[in-house]
Every structure is written in C-alpha cells, then in structure tokens.
Amino acid sequence: MEYDFLRNTITGTAFARFSMDHEALGFWLSEELGDNAAKHVEICQTIERLQSSQLTDWRMIGKALSIELDHEQVRVFANNIEDNEDNDGTELDESMSFYDGESEAFCGLEDFYAVLVNWREFLDE
C-alpha cells in the first residue's frame, strides 16, 4: 500500500492519495478524519484497545465513508456501497465486475495505525 500526503497549493487543504485498491483510505483520511485531532486521538486509542484485546471490534459511521476495525484489519467503505446487481435486480454477467477500489478498501491494523501517525505528523508540519 503506497500513499502520499499533499496540500492544495491554493487552499492549503491537506489530502491523502493512496495506491489502487486503497483509494477509499485516502478519501476517508481526507474527508472524514481531516484535521480533527479529537477524532484522531479516539481512533488511535481504539486501535490500542483492540491490540490489547480490551475490545473486539469498532465502527464509526461517517458522512460518506465509514470505518470498521477489528484486532487484525481495517475496512473503509462507502455508506452507499451496493452489491453486484444492476438497478432492475438482475445479476451481472460473470465476465463483468465493478471496480470498487474507490468505495471499499482493507488494510492491516498495524499498517493503518502507521498511516494515522504519519497523517497527524504531516498535518502538524
């Protein structure tokens, strides 16, 4: 999983750009977490509780994206994520599939914790 943290040269707004299949993580960091220090602390403390087995799982519902954590992995997903059916209820042909890298992403809990630390450091620069 590769990523960059950048700033808009005009507005100064920070945003995260992640590699293919992990784009939803970048959207979540940029749009849902942003520079909210209290939310950042809450999530880091939650990860520590998951790692010490004080907690089994955790979920935060966002405006557009939500996040689920357990003791091994993190899932970021669009709140309106749909299954692989079209609007009339028929299933897609097997040769067709949706690209959902912008709607859903997974990563390991330790990797996610490192991303959060790096994001906060970037914001504090």
Rank of each mutant, 00 (worst) to 15 (best):
A78D: 05
H40G: 04
D86W: 07
F18C: 14
N118G: 11
D86Y: 03
E121A: 12
A14Y: 04
D100F: 00
L116N: 10
L116I: 12
L25V: 02
V115C: 13
A38Q: 15
V41C: 05
L55K: 14
A105C: 13
D21Q: 13
L123N: 09
F122S: 01
F112M: 09
R75N: 15
Q51I: 09
N79F: 01
L65Y: 08
T13N: 14
A105Y: 08
A16M: 11
Y113R: 13
A16S: 11
T56D: 06
A114N: 15
A114I: 12
M20V: 12
R59H: 07
I10F: 00
S30R: 04
T9Q: 14
E110M: 12
H40F: 08
N118L: 11
F106I: 10
S52C: 15
D111G: 04
T46L: 02
R75D: 15
Y99T: 10
N84D: 10
E42D: 04
G62P: 03
N84I: 06
G12D: 05
I61H: 07
D21T: 13
F5K: 09
E72W: 02
E42A: 03
L65N: 03
F112K: 12
W58K: 08
Q51L: 14
D57Y: 04
D124M: 02
D35P: 05
H22I: 08
I43C: 13
C107N: 14
T11S: 14
F77D: 03
N87H: 12
D100S: 09
Q51V: 10
W28N: 03
W119M: 07
S19Q: 15
H71G: 13
D70Q: 04
V41F: 03
V117L: 14
Y99I: 13
E2C: 14
F15D: 01
E102F: 03
A37H: 01
E82L: 05
D100L: 10
L65T: 01
R75V: 15
D93R: 08
D57E: 15
D100M: 02
E72P: 02
C44A: 11
E104G: 00
I81S: 07
S53Y: 09
E42Q: 11
E125Q: 02
G34E: 09
E82V: 02
E104N: 09
V117G: 12
Y99S: 14
T90W: 06
D70V: 03
V115S: 12
A78G: 01
Q45S: 05
K63I: 08
R120K: 12
